[in-house]
Write a protein that binds this DNA or RNA. Structure first.
Length: 110
DNA sequence: CCCGTGACTTTCG
DNA sequence: GCGAAAGCCACGG
C-alpha cells in the first residue's frame, strides 16, 4: 500500500500511538524517544517521554531510551535490571547511570 | 487562547 | 568527549 507516509493522527490519540510503538519493540532491542516520535510522524520526543511518565507503567518503558544510549532520567537502575534480564547489549560508563546502552547493536528498526 | 512544564534532541564552543 | 543553550511537540491549568 503505498503508505510509508506518516499517517494523520486520526483514529487514535497520541498516547495510544506511543504505547503501540513501544509494544512493538522486541526484547533485547531499544529505540530512542526521537525514533518513536518519528514513527508517529511527529518530532515530540519530549511528548513521548511525558506519555511514558503517565502511561508507561503498562508497557516496556525501559526499551525506550534517550539519544546516545542513555536510559530515562532517574530510572537508570530499574532499567538496567530489565536490560540484563533480556540480554540487551550494554557498555560500561563512568557517569551517574553507571552504564550505557550499545545503540549501535541494540537500536530497533521498524 | 496563552503559559508553563517535561522519562527529549541537536548544535555550538 | 562534555557542558550549555535553543528548538520542538503534546498536555494541563
Amino acid at each position: 500500500m503505498s503508505e510509508g507516509e506518516r499517517m494523520p493522527q486520526h483514529p487514535v490519540g497520541f498516547v495510544e500511538a506511543v504505547l503501540v510503538v513501544v509494544a512493538d519493540i522486541p526484547s533485547g532491542q531499544v529505540a530512542t524517544y526521537g525514533d518513536v516520535a518519528a514513527l508517529l510522524g511527529s518530532r515530540g520526543a519530549r511528548a513521548v517521554g511525558g506519555v511514558m511518565a503517565h502511561y508507561g507503567s503498562e508497557v516496556a518503558w525501559w526499551r525506550v531510551i534517550r539519544a546516545g544510549g542513555r536510559p530515562p532520567a532517574g530510572h537508570a537502575e530499574a532499567a538496567r535490571q530489565h536490560y540484563e534480564a533480556e540480554g540487551t547489549p550494554l557498555l560500561p560508563a563512568e557517569n551517574e547511570d553507571g552504564y550505557r546502552i550499545d545503540l549501535r547493536a541494540a537500536r530497533w528498526r521498524a
